[in-house]
Write a protein that binds this DNA or RNA. Structure first.
Lengths: 211, 211
DNA sequence: TTCTCATGAGAAGGAGCGTTCTCTTTACAT
DNA sequence: ATGTAAAGAGAACGCTCCTTCTCATGAGAA
């Protein structure tokens, strides 16, 4: 029935649409991209488009979901975990990843923030964006918890201020935004590291059973 | 010739247009607001509109200029200077002002950031927004200079990260964003306060020649 | 009053957009 | 070969939007 389309050059229509939408939406937002542009990029007939997605907004919703999978989970969180040995280093690695992202050719800014500001917090897509942004913060909070920090909610919210702030200022041309935010993150983390009774160590009541 | 229209209930057409545009643009961005909506709000004929502004984009440009006058200069910087005795307190007062702004009924978010993300950095309005954002940072830098802080450019950029970051997260619903950013700003300022030879300093090998 | 100029009211042009519809073509399963 | 379901091509509808144009109204200056 359904043709096998792993990742061959000729993909299924739905996948081609989603890829084109990902490219265009992440760079330019939702409103600035027309359905015509998406179907011509994905080489799909207009009727085929509406057979797979009931509306442009629903495609935008699918885009936001994929954005969380691809960008938040794989490119950011998984990469940060891979780079840092200790959870604290993982949190700081986020800003290194940002720095490289800022300098790369396809720095498109924060899609969730862009869509939220574009559509407003009442629009379904704005609400969806807030949801995704909350998910990002939840993942950050998880790492902070593994790092043994105090006031987890506060730390997660504060780190998100630094993350969003440096993405915005990078969009305005601040090339040092990532490094600056990282410094502030280091101070934040130090401030929320519980005092250690034992000595020059860091974490309390060392977790003997690592991993 | 020109009728005297100070601030009476019946203002000139141009002023009425600008006021309506300020209200609508600052809350919803540029694209989401139609010319029809502006003229009906300002009770002006469509022909009158185009006699005063050659295009919607030019009105948007005038809006951004007014936004800097009214919001950045008067509501933010002047208010911060009024609240703080010492320049350092003035810098921190910014986040108190933000906090009250977040809770007020007309928290519309950062217009410059909104327009920048909406139009992109290549569009004239996006470029204008970046200009205004740079002006904001310049004003912050001035206060930091009067506070005698070190690394003025770095401090100004870092404070802007905190400002933009907490505005964004406040837009997503973080009610404590202002307080959190203020705490990080305090740490930042402390870190850039030149060591005082007279007292219990903290940093190592302090740069004696501050400023 | 008469002249002048800003404003008002509204129609219309011209373009773009999201969406629906009809008809044809392709490709695979039986 | 035949049947079936997906995909392609393209026209068209209805709507919104920015902008221009025409003509009437009103208030102040001479």
């Amino acid at each position: 029935m359904v043709p096998v389309m792993s990742e061959s050059p000729k993909q299924g229509a739905r996948e081609r649409i989603l890829e084109a939408a990902y490219d265009l939406f992440s760079r330019r937002g939702i409103r600035d991209v027309s359905v015509d542009e998406i179907i011509s990029r994905s080489k799909v007939a207009i009727a085929t488009f509406y057979r797979h997605f009931s509306s442009k907004d629903q495609l935008a919703e699918a885009f936001l979901n994929r954005r969380e999978e691809v960008w938040t989970s794989e490119l950011l969180v998984a990469e940060a975990v891979k780079r840092g040995a200790a959870p604290k280093d993982q949190l700081l690695a986020i800003f290194d990843i940002f720095d490289e992202w800022f300098e790369s050719e396809h720095f498109e800014g924060d899609s969730f923030v862009k869509v939220l500001l574009e559509m407003g917090p009442e629009h379904p897509l704005g609400k969806a964006s807030i949801n995704h942004l909350n998910n990002v913060r939840a993942m950050i909070r998880d790492i902070a918890e593994r790092a043994g920090l105090t006031d987890l909610d506060d730390v997660a919210h504060s780190l998100q201020i630094l993350m969003k702030g440096c993405i915005i200022t990078a969009s305005m041309g601040d090339v040092g935004a990532g490094a600056r935010a990282k410094l502030m993150a280091e101070r934040l983390i130090a401030e929320h590291t519980p005092a250690d009774v034992t000595a020059a160590g860091d974490a309390p009541t060392e977790n003997a059973l690592a991993e």
